[in-house]
Nucleic acid binder design. Sequence first.
DNA 1: GATATGACGCAAA
DNA 2: GTTTGCGCCATAT
Length: 113
Amino acid sequence: MGYFEEIRKTVARIPRGRVSTYGEVARVAGYPRTARQVAWALRDGSLLGIPWQRVLGSGGRILLRGRYGRMQRELLEGEGVRFAGDRVEMARHAFTFPVKAPRVGTARIDGNR
DNA sequence: GATATGACGCAAA
DNA sequence: GTTTGCGCCATAT
């Protein structure tokens, strides 16, 4: 799987009305410290049917400048995302990606390893 | 291979 | 709260 594909797949998991951040997406996708590259993967997200508007800078700030930035805000507000000033109310909308942890089965101790 | 470019993030001032 | 500097790393040229 390619890098972009992983990133896009991760972004696609963000539910409507919830948001995430570049850094978070990068980590969850399995590529820590590649927050900047996430932006690259989303450049033509709108053309790929990816909810690019749900990815924000840390702290819930919209980093996109100009009309695209305004468009992002409109799209988000359109799906019920609330803003406090220039940033999204992360406490309310931050999406926590489900951890794909090994099951914590009842009688399973997970010996070593 | 070498450089330049960013929708980043964080620590420091 | 703001600005600055720097590390980061996939693509583009």
